[in-house]
Computed example of a mutant assay.
Amino acid sequence: MTTTLVTGARGKVGQGVIARLRAAGHSVRAASAHPADLTVPDGVERAELALDRPEAFGAVLRGVQQVFLYPQPAGIHAFAEAAEAAGVEHVVLLSSSSVLGPDAENDPLASHSLLVERALADSGLNCTFLRPDAFTSNSLGWAYFVGQGLPIQLAHPDAHIAPIHPEDLADIAAEALTGSSLTGSAPTLTGPESLTFREQLAVLAEALGREIPVERISRAEAEEQMGRHMPAPVVTSLLNLWEAATRGPAPVHDTTLTLLGHPARTYHQWARENTAAFARP
């Protein structure tokens, strides 16, 4: 029986991959820096994995044929070497579509994933790179403000994105790990439709049955607000990305429809599934 090591096992996508593999009868080892905190299905083994402790890689990878890997540049070269030595046959990386952007090496949004892609590509491992664009779940960043009845303040409310539902990404990742149709590929993944931030908020408002006011703010105001929670280079990169995205609809790339043959989950569906996160206190 094939054993798959799933890193990032506390994340939404990682949890979805674990559930799908286990339901299909596969052996799964869920890895985390704090494995005792993991909630996993019965029969799933927990393992401790910290990429700054390469001396432990051998034990974590023993008996593993496949790895679902979250991108973490620290320790990736040592991890790839250990995976080769352990006989790992396939690595499916949750990368990012940002690696395809201009000057990706110097972009703080892209370089993280790009370094991991390059390390794996330089190894002898058979790899599949999944490159999702924005997630529908990014909208949870608005939850506090919506719950408090506050306006959503955006510098670029009419920026277009085609966000992918995390469950679609988990479906695609599970197929990459259990089938052969995606092996060795690097698909760019999106949801099935382009929506502006303003349109997403209108969908959320409809699902909640109440208005969500949207206010346009200046770039300087956005930089100040976002800078409270993230490094300045990341703020700059995001605002540049969103400014460019105001020029027209976002391209729709591969989805579960094109890759798996079943309809992609929509942003409307995600909104209906997550109304509780936006509820008033």
Score class of each variant (00 low, 15 high):
Leu260Val: 13
Pro249Arg: 09
Gly248Met: 04
Arg228Gln: 15
Trp242Leu: 13
Ala250Tyr: 07
Trp270Arg: 04
Ala232Arg: 12
Thr258Trp: 09
Pro249Cys: 08
Gln225Tyr: 13
Asn240Ile: 04
Pro233Ile: 05
Glu224Thr: 13
Met226Gln: 11
Gly209Arg: 11
Trp270Ser: 02
Gln225Val: 02
Glu243Lys: 12
Leu257Gln: 15
Met230Ile: 11
Leu257Trp: 13
Val235Ala: 07
Arg219Lys: 03
Glu224Asn: 11
His268Val: 03
Leu259Met: 07
Arg228Leu: 15
Ile212Cys: 14
Ile217Trp: 03
Pro231Leu: 00
Tyr267Trp: 01
Pro231Trp: 04
Ile212Ala: 11
Thr236Trp: 00
Leu259Ser: 09
Ser237Cys: 02
Pro231Tyr: 10
Pro233Met: 00
Ser237Asp: 06
Leu241Gly: 05
Val234Thr: 14
Ser218Lys: 10
Leu238Ile: 01
Ala220Ser: 14
Ala245Met: 11
His268Tyr: 02
Tyr267Asp: 07
Thr236Gln: 12
Ala245Cys: 07
His268Gly: 03
Thr246Lys: 01
Leu259Val: 14
Ser237Ala: 15
Arg216Asp: 00
Ala264Cys: 05
Arg272Glu: 08
Pro249Tyr: 11
Glu224Trp: 03
Thr266Ser: 15
Trp242Arg: 09
Ile217Phe: 06
Ala245Gln: 14
Gly261Ala: 10
Pro263Cys: 08
Arg265Gly: 02
Leu260Thr: 14
Val252Asn: 08
Thr255Ser: 08
Ser237Ile: 02
Gly227Met: 02
Pro249Glu: 14
Thr266Gly: 08
Glu211Met: 11
Glu221His: 10
Val214Cys: 12
Leu238Gly: 09
Leu238Trp: 04
Asp254Gly: 06
Pro233Val: 03
Arg265Val: 00
Met230Gln: 15
Ala220Ile: 00
Thr236Asn: 10
Gly227Gln: 08
Thr236His: 12
Met226Ser: 08
Thr256Cys: 03
Arg219Leu: 02
Arg228Asp: 15
Met226Thr: 01
Glu211Gln: 13
Pro213Ser: 10
Ala264Phe: 01
Ala271Cys: 12
Arg210Ser: 14
Thr255Glu: 01
Arg272Pro: 04
Val235Tyr: 08
Pro251Tyr: 09
Glu223Gly: 05
Glu221Lys: 10
Ala271Asn: 08
Val235Thr: 02
Arg210Met: 08
Pro249Met: 04
Ser218Arg: 02
Pro263Phe: 06
Thr236Val: 11
Glu223Ile: 00
Asn240Met: 12
Leu239Met: 02
Gly248Cys: 09
Val234Glu: 11
Arg216Lys: 15
Glu215Ala: 14
His253Ala: 15
Ala250Glu: 09
